[in-house]
Write a protein that binds this DNA or RNA. Sequence first.
DNA 1: TTGTACGCGTTATCAT
DNA 2: ATGATAACGCGTACAA
Lengths: 331, 331
Amino acid sequence: MENLKNRVTIYEVAKMSGVSLATVSRVINNSDIVSQKTKDKVNDVIKKLGYKPSALAQGLATSKSTTIGVVIPSANYVYISNMLNGMTDKAKELGYDLRLFTTSHDRGEALKVMEKVITSHVDGAIIFDDELENEELMKIASYSVPLVAINNDIEATNVGCIHFGYEHNIKNIVADYIKNPHKEMYFIHSNNCGRLLERIEKAFVDTHVKNNTNYGILSSDDSYTKTYNDFMKFFESTKKGYFLAYRDSLAMAILNAALDSNLKVPEDVEILSLIGTKYALMTRPQISSMHIDLYQIGASAVELLTKIMNKEETDKHITFASEFVKRGSTL
Amino acid sequence: MENLKNRVTIYEVAKMSGVSLATVSRVINNSDIVSQKTKDKVNDVIKKLGYKPSALAQGLATSKSTTIGVVIPSANYVYISNMLNGMTDKAKELGYDLRLFTTSHDRGEALKVMEKVITSHVDGAIIFDDELENEELMKIASYSVPLVAINNDIEATNVGCIHFGYEHNIKNIVADYIKNPHKEMYFIHSNNCGRLLERIEKAFVDTHVKNNTNYGILSSDDSYTKTYNDFMKFFESTKKGYFLAYRDSLAMAILNAALDSNLKVPEDVEILSLIGTKYALMTRPQISSMHIDLYQIGASAVELLTKIMNKEETDKHITFASEFVKRGSTL
DNA sequence: TTGTACGCGTTATCAT
DNA sequence: ATGATAACGCGTACAA
């Protein structure tokens, strides 16, 4: 317990075992060309001294850090932490550690983060911030850091891409709805929510334009409380609508505002959450949502990245289709 | 773009700038004893070559990694990701990176994770997994890795502790309730949820025992769906109760089961969530909860850790009081 | 099977 | 103000 001494190094293990440090190194790395006898001897000393190899030195010697950098806008969204969870599990399975980087909405800052990723000497990086421009991502890739970009489209040898397949689904939903338009459809537009939301919005608008039907775009903050308050106001004058919201908590804000305004869901107000999580099940009525398995996506991202790192042959573009799950909040 | 060359090193920068690598190092580290002229010259070359220092080599040379290890059971809880968010922000502010480690419920595995933390050569670690025993934590601390343990009680020079203050609040609530006992109180017991939950349960039981009042302990899985189904069954026979649940989603499970069983909340069924998040606001009725600012706690943990790392004088024990917020789910 | 010696990219301690 | 040179802890050809 009073053991506040400095790190035990491979030298001390070698000395006390009466072998060279090369042999100790071999023991650590489970080299099979070392006799069981010395292996045991060295392992004993390692245990006795409590020796732990330094990943820093190992990394420098092998120029591998067994570390994956993860860039996210913030850990504070349920769907992101679901993905993070998938990544940690798969990374653990494959022997990698995760290093976390967060971006802000500031472009200049984003570049700094990319540079930090490079400096940090990770073996590869996963970027889940589709506000970033390709230029920024290529900055990393150009340093020959293998990359997996989520919802960014890049073509390069050491870059993989994972896409959320939403457009098809959105078009179907809008098209279906248009056939029998009970009420006006609104898309909840949030600033700074990335390219995926933009893509979805575009699919929404395109379908309406093509069919020459009405639609509305409502701007809102990416916050439950703010959105709830906005919609309490909104529902004072407008009593009907079909609303597409980005995340569950925004959908919940609209749902609660509708219910608290004595509107009927789904008769008067219909609500669809685009990135549904388990919380979509917890409201009454439950919220219809697009389901996409973020845990699985996180795991796949890590898997794809390691394949790219190992120069394995793989399809470097993966698309995960979202699935529309109808629940009580839509007709 | 075709730039798949190896890392640019300090040597190449030195050569191209016509200075020694010592000077380049000084420029990188903003040493003020280098002439503005050469500083500019070197910086130009750095930019031209796209040189980025290797954190690995820097770490080896300085025996500092500017990295903090974070040990959590899983990123998959809202309250944990709130905390994680506080940690990333504060760490960024202080110039540290976060390295993520997850534990499982397996004790043997836990020790492995601790060893990984040591090997990974982080400058300090924050442990938010109060299932771990002090023995395991001291393993890290004994390697002179500064530590902040959350909801674990340890006394050592390089260890800080952050506590959630719940007992007092719980006792008050139970005591208040006992004065006018409308219905029986139940504590929802989940296995493997750590020491904090055990502490709270103990405070709950103790208060009841002291007052010689009835109470119930219900076991449940740490899952929304499972808990919901369990309580749908439960409410077939039992029509009343005051339930204390660990997290919002468990509280929501009970709430929904009650409502779906045509029981009145809070008249028949009262519900309290122990670790309340924003989701407690999103149900109807809203869920009364204990509020504790996990973001703030995450930030404080990082701050405390860095102080310990820098040998600054600080109180190494911080307690965050939880606050009872009464909402519609209790009378 | 084991040991020697060099390299990994950087910092830091000397000189100059 | 700048330049050699020795660490930092480990992996790995190469030699023995």
